[in-house]
Simulated assay, not measured.
Amino acid sequence: MKANRIFSMLLIVALAGALLSGCAGHQAAAPAESAFKPFHDVVDMAFVEQHVTIPMAENVMLIDSRPYKPKYIEGHIPMAVSIPDSQFAKMTDKLPADKNALLIFYCGGLKCALSHKSAAKAEALGYKNVKVFAEGYPKWMSVKSHYPSVSAEWVKSQMDKGTDMVLVDSRPKRKQYDQGHIPSAISIPDMQFDEHKGQLPPDKNKLLVFYCGGLHCTLSHKSAAKAITMGYTNVKVFAEGYPAWVAYAGKPAATAKTTAVKAGQEEGSIDHDEFRRILAEAPESILLVDVRDAEEYKRGTLKSAINIPVDELEGKIKTLPSDKPVVFICGTGARSGESFYMVQDLRPELKNVYYLDGELTIGKDGSYTIKKPQ
């Protein structure tokens, strides 16, 4: 009995030792799971807002520690530089030479360790003024007046997908936009924003992307702020702008230098023979707009014509292109003429706009006849 009692005690001691050893082993593994330590110098939104300027001061760098794709390209704090924490060692050449420069790291919010890790790495390199904006990008976007910046890759991908967005060039029209712009972009120079803001869509939830001449250009940021003040809720800025687009996507779209359409006798009208020639030889060179009612349009129209009833034209006038002539047609020249003058009032910058003045009869097969106005 005594031997059994001793054996039982030894067994209990052995089991206890094994449990303690297992616990110790588990505790030893814990640091690997919780190796992240918050950086010692954390700043708030007010501090970041104070230092985000356009352009940024030479001795200040805002650094996004999140992955470049998909996070940074689809939205980042304006003027932030992308140095993903996973690539930090390979990208230290992007850091300023001055070790006293202010470095502000951020990532995806309070649960994100990337900015803290990168900040510690920067400090280890000898940088003396390193901060972490721990609340990061989510906190930035929680402020109604704030907007994100996007990159050329994101803009191109949205264009390729056919995303319903309005791309706005905030640079001066004649000196810059007309010399080259991103395809599909409309021109609303920031200095004439109030004059041309009617080109913006009535839907305040529509995606608006503003751009101008690069990171030193303030125009797109000013226009974006104005759009937000107007109530638009989905506003972004392609801050790297036109130069980055050219570098990424190649040659920009220049405003087409369209051959002037031969005019008719009445102001804004197109010559009848010219009209026939264009439809026969190059119908794609113009935008032909049938402004009759939808029922009239369905009964027969010209093959290349689209239908925008004159009653709906004002709301859609911003969609008219600036890179090719626009020609309005109807049955008698009355509604097409009204459309021409509406464009003159609402989009005076469109110069290649005409209407067919005369009696136009269209067959179901797309054949047509034109008679001179009485």
Rank of each mutant, 00 (worst) to 15 (best):
H51P: 02
E295F: 10
D365N: 13
V291Q: 05
V130C: 04
G162H: 10
D85W: 00
Q192C: 06
A227S: 07
T218D: 09
T361K: 11
K69R: 13
E349M: 13
D160R: 14
V48N: 00
S367P: 14
L279Y: 08
S21H: 14
L19R: 14
A294E: 13
H40T: 15
S322D: 03
N352I: 09
R347E: 01
Q344I: 07
L320K: 12
L125C: 14
I228S: 01
D290C: 08
I286T: 05
D98W: 15
S285P: 08
T319D: 14
F39H: 09
Q199S: 05
I12K: 04
Q50S: 09
P283A: 07
A334Y: 03
P172R: 09
T92P: 10
L125T: 13
G213R: 05
R299W: 04
S187A: 06
A239P: 03
A254W: 02
G198A: 13
G331L: 06
F340G: 00
Y341Q: 12
L125R: 09
V235E: 00
A18C: 15
E312C: 13
L110A: 15
F36G: 02
P55M: 03
W140P: 07
V132H: 04
Y354A: 01
Y106H: 07
G75K: 13
H40K: 15
P321A: 05
A97Q: 15
F238Y: 12
V81M: 07
F47V: 09
L102N: 08
V132D: 01
F340Q: 01
G363M: 04
G180H: 03
A294G: 08
E267W: 10
G363F: 01
P309E: 01
N129I: 05
E312S: 14
A101K: 09
I317P: 11
G213C: 08
S184Y: 10
I104A: 01
S115C: 12
R347W: 02
E281Y: 13
P321H: 06
I270V: 15
H181W: 03
I186Q: 05
S285T: 11
N234W: 03
G358K: 01
K37S: 05
I329N: 02
M230E: 12
G333H: 01
V289W: 06
G241V: 04
Y242F: 06
K197H: 11
Y177S: 00
M159W: 06
